[in-house]
């Protein structure tokens, strides 16, 4: 499979989760496991551009597909992309454990819906748990990113 544009190969047990493949085989530990049963959304990555829970997919199911993770978002080592920057500026994270999954979910959401209302963002965020922030600043950050991406 390709992860963030880089080909990653491996021979794995059928039961290996995509999340474990990304973390252990590809060494990309930005994708976090919060529940391993598809509720919390921390492990969200994009599979062929669509947000998916990498704890509910086996690695073999991603064979030959394109996977995007949080590590592929920033344009360079010394910069953040628009959405990441907005999270930073709006205090949209505290412990940061859920943040990669939320960024991947919201990145795909903004592609689909580039000019969402706060209510639409709130609803799109409903599948990602955050225990620290109370969500309000995340919604503000996504709206700020939308404004910047649209100008």
């Amino acid at each position: 499979m390709k992860i963030n544009g880089r080909a990653v190969e491996g021979e794995v047990e059928p039961r290996l989760l995509l999340a474990d493949f990304i973390r252990d085989n590809a060494g990309l530990t930005g994708t976090h496991l919060g529940c391993e049963h598809g509720v919390c959304g921390a492990c969200t990555v994009q599979l062929d551009g669509h947000p998916v829970r990498s704890c509910l997919i086996f690695a073999v199911q991603a064979h030959g597909h394109q996977v995007a993770t949080v590590e592929g978002m920033a344009p360079s080592d010394s910069s953040l992309n628009t959405l990441q920057q907005a999270f930073h500026e709006c205090h949209a994270l505290q412990c940061g454990f859920c943040t990669p999954g939320i960024l991947m979910t919201m990145d795909a959401f903004l592609r689909e819906e580039p000019d969402p209302t706060p209510e639409r963002i709130r609803s799109a965020l409903g599948g990602n748990l955050c225990r620290c922030t109370g969500y309000q600043n995340i919604i503000t950050a996504v709206r700020l990113a939308a404004d910047r991406l649209n100008c």
Partner: peptide, 18 residues
């Protein structure tokens, strides 16, 4: 802006499982 954020939004944090 918080000192903590940069690695966390880039997926470069080191949590225990990492």
């Amino acid at each position: 802006l918080r000192k903590e954020d940069w690695p966390l939004v880039r997926g470069e944090g080191t949590f225990i499982a990492d």
